[in-house]
Amino acid sequence: MENYKSNFKELPEPIKQFGGLIGIMIIIFITFFVLNKMFGEGDELVAKMKIEEERIAQERKLNKLISSLPSGILVSFDGTDHFKLSDELYEAVCKATKLIPQRAIMGANFLNFRAHEIYTINGNKIDETFVKWDKEKNKCFAGFVVSGNNVGVDETISVSGEALSFLSTGIDTRVYFIKNF
């Protein structure tokens, strides 16, 4: 060891400096390798991001479709003067719709007294809303969850039904009528 040390000391200054430079580079490489093991997410991220990009593309497509729809009420059944959605459009609108306005909630609550009670007692608070496309039934389902304290009892009630009509604002679509009977 002593021998190596004295040999190193005897080396000319430029060689020592060059060795130092290489040493620093090696330290940097090793540090990066260690950090890459700990934090690097190269391939998984590529896969994740591709899925995300597909989702964004799909959403854009739906948004484009929605902006082409007429403003007003869109229905999935015959017999009204409102715009009748084709099967394809019905599915697309269902997938693009995220909002359930109070009107639709109040309508659904009309047939669910307990949900209506909790909804009223807790200051019209809604925990969660959902709009889902049911592949098996080929139908759009929408619903909401209300929870709260009803005369000393904590209750959670989920109300859901078929979304039969939507309201198109020109910018987005909202569930207009939930058939929960």
């Binding site: 950090l35 890459n36 934090f39 997410e41 991220l45």
Partner: peptide
Amino acid sequence: NQSTFVFLGKEVRYYAFDVF
């Protein structure tokens, strides 16, 4: 797609690339 880590109780979100 962001990764997260928590330090001193603070959550940091970031895009984790190859560290190199």
